[in-house]
Design a protein around this nucleic acid. Structure first.
Lengths: 157, 157
DNA sequence: CCAACGTACATGATGCGTCATTCATTCCAG
DNA sequence: CTGGAATGAATGACGCATCATGTACGTTGG
């Protein structure tokens, strides 16, 4: 770790702008969701994921695979959401360890009510300021970095 | 909010990849910092900011302006950091309301010890997977979105 | 001067995220 | 089968972030 390869001027600017941008953006989106629907972004992601599976329910570990969350984060999150009546649990016959997590009616109504406003905020605050090319580049960049992250996980394991 | 403009396929992919990428990346960086130096990214940002000002100290509201944090977040953060001996307070003569926040010796040693490893992680996990052009684009994109966010704040205010 | 307003900062409550640990169930080698 | 390893999940403790509110100091118009 001697003689570290510091970031050069442009890298540093890019990195700090990026962190700042993300922080501000997510804070805004969170506030919008919270104010308009009483949801956090985390709630939103769980609800969207559940609403998109044909079966209407998922095992926690499947949800975890999709969201890429820590197991205990998901567990806490689901407990809170269950407590608020957004999701429910259905018994799982073939594996006695877990259950199925499913949207409740209230959960479905909530996500359907929240989605348009949230998508609109994402548009207004983010996509509307970008060109097609920038959007494409960002998707590409994100995918690249994600691959890299996954790859370097394997090494550690 | 009727007839919402949903995200199209590529926008949705980009958005989800982006959120996922950021989550994974920040989680990794946080873990690296925590494991190697006992710091969170928030600690790191505060320490770096303080270490870069010539005077060696800042008023909380100046720190806030730089970091763009919520005021109470900063207040809590500084209290915790003071408690851990990373920063200290120096009396402020010309304004009785606040004090100056300064690095302690331990704080300076900590940030100097942490920086190389952190920068290296940022390189390895992020920059090394990107081309020059991508880095430039990302900086540009972030700056654009930031402008947009600031602009739309004024309107609300 | 001083009342009213604005600014700088702190605090308590509450929800969120991580780590470490625990527990039950399932899988599998022998 | 059976005992140990692996898997799916819950929990408690603790630090972090936000909101609402409180407080002390500063500033300014009358």
């Amino acid at each position: 770790m001697d003689n570290p390869r510091w970031l050069d001027e442009s890298e540093q600017r890019a990195w700090r702008s990026y962190l700042q941008m993300h922080g501000q953006l997510l804070a805004r989106l969170n506030r919008q969701l919270q104010a308009d629907s009483g949801l956090s972004l985390a709630d939103y992601e769980v609800l969207v994921t559940l609403s998109e599976v044909p079966a209407g329910h998922l095992r926690p570990f499947e949800l975890q695979r999709v969201l890429q969350w820590e197991q205990s984060r998901l567990s806490h999150q689901l407990r809170r959401m269950e407590h608020r009546g957004l999701v429910g649990r259905e018994g799982c016959t073939d594996d006695g360890r877990g259950a199925f997590i499913a949207l409740t009616d209230a959960g479905r109504r909530t996500i359907e009510a929240a989605a348009p406003g949230h998508v609109d905020a994402v548009r207004r605050l983010f996509f509307d300021g970008l060109t097609r090319d920038q959007i494409t580049m960002l998707g590409q960049l994100s995918a690249q970095v994600l691959d890299r992250l996954d790859a370097s996980t394997d090494v550690v394991t």
